[in-house]
């Protein structure tokens, strides 16, 4: 995949430099107190995690693209989502995601409040009932599972990686294989990932999964290979209702800037301190 290749190229330069720096430090005698230094460094970095995690300086070799000039962000207008799941299908195809019910870079949740009940019934395309309705794990559909029951309120919520400003996944990655680019996208260098899945645990949104075919972690990249060529992410491209909005916040007139400016937007699980960059309109108290 082209997006992955880009992340790997940028990261390999970075790792090479880090390796050299690190080895020269070791030669200087630092190895004797390496453990203490790393421990202390870790503790300090944990304490100062308020600063954004970025890769710092190494510019990717993408023709005609300068990542310092962009600040990507994503918007979801849940009031427009009709749960057609074309986004899920497009994402799977575009990014060669495993075609089963356990690996998703993006998914859609359905919230249904039945009359007389306080809590919503929540499901997504991976629910066995929905898989039975679609006929296969590689086909995505919401079953009409509530039949004749009286529905008080119902809505869909598209989900994806939040590309947080303070990503917990980046914080915990032991090798730096996952990192935040200058333009605000959290990506993974699949050639450097050791597959420990600490990042999968750390993500509060369940946005990461382990790709058993390549033995590495995977997640949404906002289709980095497309956006750096001026295209939209695949899910945004195929959404028939415009529920998904993507753009550059560096451009005040962009759709996403206008979306954030003209709406009261929310982010998911703000209490985690991760500061997500997917902004929602039309969600509900039970959406987490």
């Amino acid at each position: 995949m082209e997006g992955d290749k880009m992340a790997e190229d940028v990261q390999s330069q970075k790792h090479e430099q880090e390796r050299r720096d690190f080895l020269s430090r070791c030669l200087g005698g630092a190895i004797a107190c390496g453990a203490a230094a790393v421990t202390a460094g870790s503790a300090m970095s944990q304490a100062t995690a308020a600063t954004p995690e970025t890769s710092g300086g190494t510019v990717p070799a993408i023709p005609g693209y300068d990542w310092s000039k962009h600040h990507w962000a994503f918007g979801v207008d849940a009031t427009k989502c009709i749960g057609c799941l074309r986004c899920v299908e497009a994402c799977k195809k575009e990014n060669n995601v495993n075609a089963d019910a356990h690996h998703f870079r993006t998914w859609v949740e359905r919230y249904v409040y039945l009359e007389g009940e306080d809590n919503p019934h929540v499901d997504s395309q991976h629910d066995p009932v929905n898989i039975e309705a679609s006929g296969s794990e590689g086909e995505y559909r919401f079953a009409n599972r509530y039949g004749d029951e009286k529905v008080e309120k119902a809505f869909f919520v598209p989900k994806l990686c939040n590309h947080c400003t303070h990503p917990a996944c980046v914080q915990v990655c032991p090798t730096g294989a996952t990192y935040k680019t200058e333009d605000g996208v959290v990506v993974i260098d699949h050639t450097y990932c050791i597959g420990c899945q600490y990042c999968v645990q750390a993500c509060p949104y369940g946005a990461r999964f382990f790709d058993e075919r390549r033995h590495v972690t995977d997640k949404c990249t906002w289709c980095y290979h497309r956006i750096t060529k001026g295209l939209q992410p695949a899910c945004v491209e195929v959404c028939p209702t415009g529920a998904r909005i993507f753009g550059d916040r560096a451009d005040k007139q962009s759709t996403i800037s206008q979306f954030i400016q003209n709406n009261r937007v929310y982010v998911l699980k703000p209490e985690t301190g991760n500061a997500p960059n997917v902004f929602y309109v039309g969600t509900d108290k039970d959406v987490t």
Binding site: T39, S42, P174, G176, A177, I194, C196
Partner: peptide, 22 residues
């Protein structure tokens, strides 16, 4: 580990904010 042969990456380029890197 998915890639045990890369385990030393955590030592060669330790990501200092990670508890695992230590």
């Amino acid at each position: 580990l998915g890639h045990p042969e890369r385990a030393f990456n955590a030592m060669i380029t330790p990501h200092t904010t990670s508890a695992f890197a230590v």
